[in-house]
Design a protein around this nucleic acid. Structure first.
Ligand code: NAD
Ligand code: NAD
Lengths: 215, 215
DNA sequence: TTAAATTTGTGAAAAAGTTATCAAAAAGCG
DNA sequence: CGCTTTTTGATAACTTTTTCACAAATTTAA
């Protein structure tokens, strides 16, 4: 199986190749992509070979061909659909964001248990969580974004797994217990912030004008 | 230098140890933490040894002692302060979130260039970005959260680095160019979603009731 | 007190991931 | 055309990270 960081790097290369395409280029070299994405050229070639992407010796990679291949790999011509559970702070920020549409990702609907959220207008329909099973099966949904309070996330997850969800984007700090075939991508903002503080505390480059050692 | 994933795992152990403490336990074993966090017991012990945390053979780890040690490592008794740049969808979700306060992390102020954001009420002061340098130096800020549009993030970053910021939490899809001593933690929600779709497409566990192959 | 059971800590082994090396292909050029 | 330069692709070397294995310590219990 191709590992997550490999996939994510290739998605970054894709973005970079699109930029080159927009600028009118026809070919691109591993060192171009490496520089733009902040990895080594060898890494780029390794990543490409993992996906069976071949270039031309001395000729680099053909941009049009690359873009086609990326479209195949990531189903670029297919709309990707998901649902969101918990229309709170994070949930409504995600729903309002326009950037996913450009990448052909749609949050089809949101689900909550708070009647005020269900009545609200957010640009997408917001239903009661009781209706999620019906919606998943009627619309053939495989993934869900979890932005509910941490206390209820495991129960919500269990029900979604029962309804057929096999991929989660989890914004809660909980470590979800799921069957082996279910994938969970965790976004733990607290861990990201706290680890950042850890690094800056141990850094020798802190602002020398600071009298006290504040963080 | 201790790596990020090591730090983040230990933060998860901390959370789990706190739960055990709340439940009235006095000691905890590597296998308890392993199970809760979803890693191997050996990993727990290796992680601990990296931070110089020692347990007792056959006696496990003393919970009170562990919690004290975690407080030392992560400066649990010190308020950690940061600022936020870009009071948009994501920015205001973060500012509204109450969970960081409990962990003694405060977003002291936000900065924007849109006058309507600067006039708005968000619970924390929102200043014009022109004032960020003064604020950073007067308040001894080392870290910043970036939730501005991707087109302006590099320029914003350059200015913040000049003002002394050495740690970023970057919500934009841009790969930031920063000096070597500056740490950037990236949260790329598009990459997380797209890699999830990649996995579920290649999974054999997709809902069999789906006639068409929708994603 | 001795034996049995359990759990840590660590060094070795294995696995995973990244970087270096270099032959081969292709392009440019005199 | 033949020589030089560039760049890929494959493999080897290296590095990092995780897992394994087991001695040492400590507790429990007989
Ligand atoms: N907002 C942030 O910046 C932030 C940062 C870090 C972590 N998180 C995590 O993200 C999650 C969401 O945070 P938030 O700030 O958006 O919270 P929030 O309280 O604003 O939103 C949670 C939403 O979930 C709904 N909900 C509650 N129980 C539900 C259930 N059983 N089924 C369906 N919906 C339910 C609530 O009605 C609410 O609308 C939390 O777990 C939080 O820990 C958020
Ligand atoms: N909202 C999401 O769900 C989401 C998802 C993925 C990625 N992102 C990324 O996060 C970033 C923010 O997204 P958003 O949806 O919150 O955007 P947004 O447009 O809602 O907010 C951006 C804010 O930044 C301010 N701003 C613009 N230029 C600025 C400058 N030079 N200095 C200071 N402030 C400035 C704007 O006035 C606005 O308030 C974007 O880069 C976006 O690509 C957001």
């Amino acid at each position: 199986m191709i590992i997550k960081s490999n996939i994510q790097r290739v998605l970054r290369y894709q973005h970079c190749v699109s930029n080159f395409y927009e600028l009118g280029f026809d070919k691109i070299y591993s060192h171009n992509l490496a520089e733009a994405v902040g990895v080594s050229p060898e890494q780029v070639r390794k990543d490409f070979s993992e996906f069976g992407i071949r270039g031309n010796k001395r000729g680099g990679y053909d941009i049009h061909q690359l873009l086609d291949t990326f479209q195949d790999i990531f189903h670029g011509k297919v709309d990707k659909r998901t649902i969101l559970i918990g229309m709170g702070n994070i949930g409504s920020a995600l729903v309002k964001y326009r950037g996913f549409k450009k990448k052909r990702i749609s949050i089809l609907a949101a689900f909550d248990i708070d009647p005020s959220k269900i009545k609200g207008t957010y640009g997408i329909p917001v239903y009661h969580f009781d209706e999620v099973d019906k919606f998943i099966n009627e619309n053939c949904i495989h993934t869900a974004i979890l932005s509910v309070p941490v206390v209820s996330v495991q129960q919500v997850t269990d029900e979604l797994v029962k309804s057929g969800i096999i991929g989660f984007l989890n914004f809660t700090p909980a470590i979800l217990q799921v069957p082996a075939h279910v994938v969970v991508n965790n976004i733990d903002l607290y861990l990201e912030l706290e680890s950042l503080f850890y690094y800056i505390r141990t850094s020798e480059h802190r602002n020398i004008n600071c009298k006290e050692d504040k963080f």
